[in-house]
Amino acid sequence: MAENTSRRDFLKHTALVGAGLLSAPAFGLESRQQNPTFQNKYNFYGEHQAGIVTPAQKHIYFLVLELDTHDVSKIKALFKTWTEYSRNLTTGKNVKPYGSNPYLPPADTGEADSLNTHDLTLTFGVSQSFFQKLGIEKHKPAELNDLPHFPRDQLQADYTGGDICIQACADDPQVAFHAVRNLVRVARGEVKMKWSQMGFNSFLNNDTPRNLFGFKDGTANADSLKEQEKVVWVQDGWLKGGSYLAVRRVKMFLETWDRTHLQSQEETFGRHRDSGAALGHKHEFDKLDLEKKDEKGNPVMPEISHTHLAHKSGVKMLRRSFSYSSGIDDKGQFDSGLLFISFQQSPEQFIKIQNRLGNIDKMNEYITHIGSGLFACFAGVKDENDYLGKALFELI
C-alpha cells in the first residue's frame, strides 16, 4: 500500500512539473521589455557609413574576422542580417525582440538593456582576402591589396590580416562591445574572430584628443574634413561612397618616453605639447609654414619630426585613432599604444605618408608597428530596401 501511494505521489509530482513546463512562458522572458528607442545623433541610414567622418566618440571596439565559409550566398545573407541588427542597435533596440520561452537562449545578450545608444556607430569593411576566399577576385578593387612592409615594421601575425572588419564606436564601452558581440553571435559558422582591440579617447567639448604621449592627435583632420570628397570618399565603381580603412596597432614605449625631456618630446612631434601648435606657431590650427626659421636662421621644426615629414608628403587622410592599454607585457612594461585608424579615398594616400616617415621619423625611437590591415568600407545603407555591400553582391 505504501509503495502504491509513493508511486501515485511521484506521478502526481511529475504531472505538476510537466504542467509547469507547458505554462512556463507565464513567468519567463515574456515579461521582459525590449529597450526603448533612443535618439542617436548619428543616423544609420545615409550615403556613407557612419563612423568615418562622424566626430570621434570616446570608445571603440575594433574586431577583425576571418571567413569560415566559401559560400557567397551565406555571406550575402549575413550582411543582410548585420544590416538589420545594426539598424536596431543604433536606435537603442535589441538585435531582435525577446521571445517568451525561458528555456531558449535570449535573442539579445542583454548587457546594453536600459542603456541608451551613447551615439553608437557601426562601420564594416572587407579586405582583399575576402574576395579571394569567396572566388570573386574579378570584383576586387584594383587598389585593395595588402599593405606593403614599411621600414621598422615588426608585425605580429596575431594582429595582421583578416577578411572582414567591424568598427563599433560609442561614448560607452559596454554599448560598443555589446554591438560587436551580438553581430558575431549571429555569424558563428560563417566567420571566426581573428583579433580585436578596445580603445579610448578622452576630451572635453570639441578639443582634439590627446594620445598616451600627452600630445594632441588628429589636428590635421580639420583640413581633411573640408576636402572630404577628395580625401575620404571613393568616387566610382561599386565602392562609390565608401572609403579605404587602414588600421595599425602601434605599440608605444611609454617608459622610454617618460624619461625624455620636454624639448625633445616636442621636437619629436614637431608641435608644442600644451597647445598643439606646430613649433614656431601660436595656435593649434595655424597654417603650417615648414620653412619657418628662428632668429639664428635655423628651422624651427626639425625636418625629421613627425609633423614635418607627414605634411611634406603633400597628401591628406582622415585619422580616427584611439589609445589602448592592454595590461603588462612580458618585459613588465605597459602594453599600451595607439590603435591607428585612417580613412582615405585611395590606399596610396596612407602608403605615401608612411613611406615618407620611413626610417627617419624621430617618432620611431618610441614606437613600433605590430599590427596592420587594409579594408574597403562599403557605401552607406540608404534606406530600408538597401543593405551593407548590396552594390557588390548584386554584381555576383
Results as ranks from 00 to 15, higher is better:
Leu134Thr: 05
Leu134His: 04
Gly135Ile: 11
Gly135Tyr: 11
Gly135Phe: 10
Ile136Ser: 01
Glu137Trp: 10
Lys138Met: 04
Lys138Gln: 14
Lys140Thr: 12
Pro141Asn: 15
Ala142Thr: 04
Ala142Lys: 14
Ala142Trp: 11
Glu143Cys: 13
Glu143Ile: 02
Glu143Met: 08
Leu144Lys: 04
Asn145Ile: 07
Asn145Gly: 01
Asn145Met: 10
Leu147Trp: 05
Leu147Lys: 07
Leu147Gly: 02
His149Phe: 12
His149Leu: 15
His149Met: 12
Pro151Asn: 04
Pro151Phe: 01
Pro151Asp: 05
Arg152Leu: 06
Arg152Ala: 04
Asp153Leu: 01
Gln154Tyr: 01
Gln154Pro: 01
Leu155Phe: 13
Leu155Ile: 06
Gln156Arg: 07
Thr160Pro: 11
Thr160His: 09
Thr160Leu: 09
Gly162Gln: 13
Asp163Met: 09
Asp163Trp: 06
Ile164Val: 11
Cys165Lys: 06
Cys165Ala: 10
Cys165Val: 12
Cys165Leu: 08
Ile166Cys: 11
Ile166Asn: 05
Ile166His: 06
Ala168Met: 05
Ala170Asn: 01
Ala170Glu: 02
Ala170Ser: 14
Ala170Arg: 02
Ala170His: 10
Asp171His: 08
Asp171Phe: 03
Asp172Pro: 02
Asp172Asn: 08
Pro173Asp: 11
Pro173Cys: 13
Gln174Met: 07
Gln174Arg: 10
Val175His: 00
Ala176Ser: 12
Phe177Asp: 06
Phe177Ser: 10
Phe177Lys: 03
His178Trp: 13
His178Pro: 03
His178Ser: 02
Ala179Tyr: 07
Ala179Lys: 09
Ala179Pro: 03
Ala179Asn: 03
Val180Ile: 09
Arg181Gly: 06
Arg181Cys: 07
Arg181Asn: 10
Arg181Tyr: 07
Asn182Thr: 04
Asn182Ile: 02
Asn182Leu: 11
Asn182Tyr: 00
Leu183Glu: 04
Leu183Val: 05
Leu183Ala: 09
Arg185Cys: 11
Arg185Val: 08
Arg185His: 12
Val186His: 03
Ala187Leu: 05
Arg188Ala: 15
Arg188Pro: 11
Arg188Leu: 12
Arg188Met: 14
Gly189Tyr: 08
Gly189Ser: 15
Gly189Cys: 10
Gly189Trp: 03
Glu190Arg: 14
Glu190Asn: 15
Val191Asn: 02
Val191Phe: 07
Lys192Phe: 03
Met193Phe: 10
Met193Leu: 14
Trp195Val: 02
Trp195Pro: 00
Trp195Lys: 03
Ser196Phe: 04
Ser196Val: 02
Gln197Val: 03
Met198Phe: 15
Gly199Ala: 08
Phe200Asp: 06
Phe200Lys: 11
Phe200Leu: 04
Phe200Cys: 09
Asn201Tyr: 04
Asn201Asp: 03
Asn201Gly: 01
Ser202Tyr: 05
Ser202Cys: 01
Phe203Thr: 00
Phe203Pro: 03
Leu204Gln: 13
Leu204Tyr: 06
Asn205Phe: 14
Asn205Ala: 14
Asp207Val: 03
Asp207Ser: 12
Thr208Asn: 02
Thr208Gly: 05
Thr208Ile: 13
Asn211Asp: 13
Asn211Tyr: 12
Asn211Val: 01
Leu212His: 15
Leu212Gly: 13
Phe213Ile: 07
Phe213Ser: 00
Gly214Tyr: 11
Phe215Lys: 01
Phe215Met: 00
